[in-house]
Design a protein around this nucleic acid. Structure first.
Lengths: 189, 189
DNA sequence: TGTAATCTACAACAGGTGTTGTGCTTTGGC
DNA sequence: GCCAAAGCACAACACCTGTTGTAGATTACA
C-alpha cells in the first residue's frame, strides 16, 4: 500500500503555514496537527522527528516555488528584450511577496539551516541550482549580464524581499520601481 | 540601589550568543543562564518574561552595532571621495560578517518581529534611524546618490550579508569585490 | 555599625513538547 | 468475502519551558 502522499503534502503545507505564522519556535507536531485539522499525533506519524518535519516542509517549499509549465513556456518564449526581462523579474518579486507564507517560511528555514547541516546541504544545492538556471536562461535569451551580474541581482532582490516582508525602511516607494532600478543598474549596463 | 547593569548586559550578550547559535527556538531563560554561566533562574530574575528577554537582547544589539566614537570621527573626516566611500561600505560589511553572532541574532529578531508587534515598532524605528543617518552622511559628504540610491544599496548589502551568513550561492567571489560592484553600479553613476 | 532595600539563588508549578508504542480501522489484491 | 499490510487515532512517557514565590546574602548609606 502506497503511502498516503496527499495527506503528507497537506501536512507539509500546514507546516509551511505554521512556520510562517508562528516561526521556528511555534513549529511543533501538535501545531501542525491543529493547522491541518487532523487528530493529534498524525504529524508525528508522518514525520517521525522534528528534523524530518522540517525536511518535509523544505521539500514542499521546493515544489511550491518551482517554476510551473507556463513559467517555463513563457521563459522560452521571451525574446531577448530588455523591457520584458525587467517585467519578468518584477513578476518573480511579486510572486514572492504574494506567497508571503512560503517566502517567510523559506527565510526561517535558511536561518535554521545555519545550525542544521543535514538541512543546509539540500538547501544550498537547491539555491545553487536555481542560480545556475537563471544564468543559463539569461545567456540563452541573449541578454547582457553574466554570472557576476546575475549574482548581484540575486543578492539585491533577496534583500529587497526580506525588507518588504519584515519591517521595511522605505515602504512608500513602489516595489516595481525598485526592481526596475536594480535591473537597469545591475544588468542592463 | 541601582540595578546590577553589568550583569544585565552580560545576560543580554549571552542571549545574543544563544540566539545566534540555537535560533529563536533555543532561546530560553535557562539556556541564557547556562551561556552566561550563572545559576539557573538568574535570567528569569532580570528578564521577567520571554518577551522582556527578547527586548533586552534587541536593546543590546542596538548598542553593539551603534557606530563608535572613532567611526563617527572617521565619518566626519571623510572627504567626498568615491574610493573612500566604497572602502567605507566595505568596512561596514566586513564588520557585519565578523560580528556573525550579532548579525545573525538580528536576522532572527527581524523574523520574530513579524509576529510580535511590540518588538516590531522599536526595530522598525531603529532601522529607519540608521537609514536616515546614512542619507544625511552621504549628503554631507557631497557624494552622489540620494535617498533612492542609498535605499537600493541598503537592500543589496542586506541581501549579500544574509547570503554570506547562511548558505551562499557563490562563496568563491570575494565579498569586497561584490561590494565594490554594488557601490559603483548603484551609487557612483 | 545598624538597617532597610535590593540582589541572588533556588525550588516549585502547571503546561507544553518530542517521541514511541499499541491496538483498531481501512485498504487492495486474491 | 478474506486477509495481510498499511494507515490511523490515541495514550503514555520523560523531559523542557515560562513563570512565580521566597528565604537568605549583599549592599549602600545614615
Amino acid at each position: 500500500m502506497a503511502r498516503n502522499e496527499a495527506r503528507r503534502i497537506a501536512l507539509a503545507d500546514a507546516g509551511v503555514a505554521v512556520l510562517a505564522r508562528e516561526g521556528s519556535r511555534g513549529l511543533t507536531h501538535r501545531a501542525v496537527d491543529a493547522e491541518a485539522d487532523v487528530p493529534t499525533g498524525t504529524t508525528s506519524n508522518y514525520f517521525r522527528s522534528r528534523d524530518a518535519l522540517i525536511q518535509g516542509i523544505f521539500d514542499r517549499i521546493g515544489q511550491r516555488l518551482a517554476p510551473t509549465e507556463e513559467d517555463l513556456a513563457a521563459r522560452s518564449g521571451i525574446p531577448p528584450n530588455r523591457t520584458l526581462f525587467a517585467a519578468y523579474i518584477r513578476d518573480i518579486v511579486r510572486r514572492l511577496l504574494e506567497n508571503r507564507e512560503v517566502t517567510l517560511a523559506l527565510y526561517e528555514l535558511r536561518l535554521a539551516a545555519v545550525r542544521q547541516p543535514n538541512l543546509a546541504a539540500p538547501l544550498a544545492a537547491w539555491q545553487r541550482a536555481g542560480f545556475e538556471a537563471d544564468i543559463t536562461f539569461n545567456e540563452a535569451a541573449g541578454l547582457p549580464g553574466g554570472r557576476r551580474e546575475i549574482a548581484l541581482l540575486h543578492y539585491a532582490i533577496e534583500g529587497l524581499v526580506f525588507d518588504r516582508l519584515t519591517s521595511s525602511i522605505d515602504p512608500e516607494t513602489s516595489t516595481d520601481e525598485i526592481v526596475d532600478d536594480f535591473v537597469s543598474a545591475l544588468i542592463l549596463v
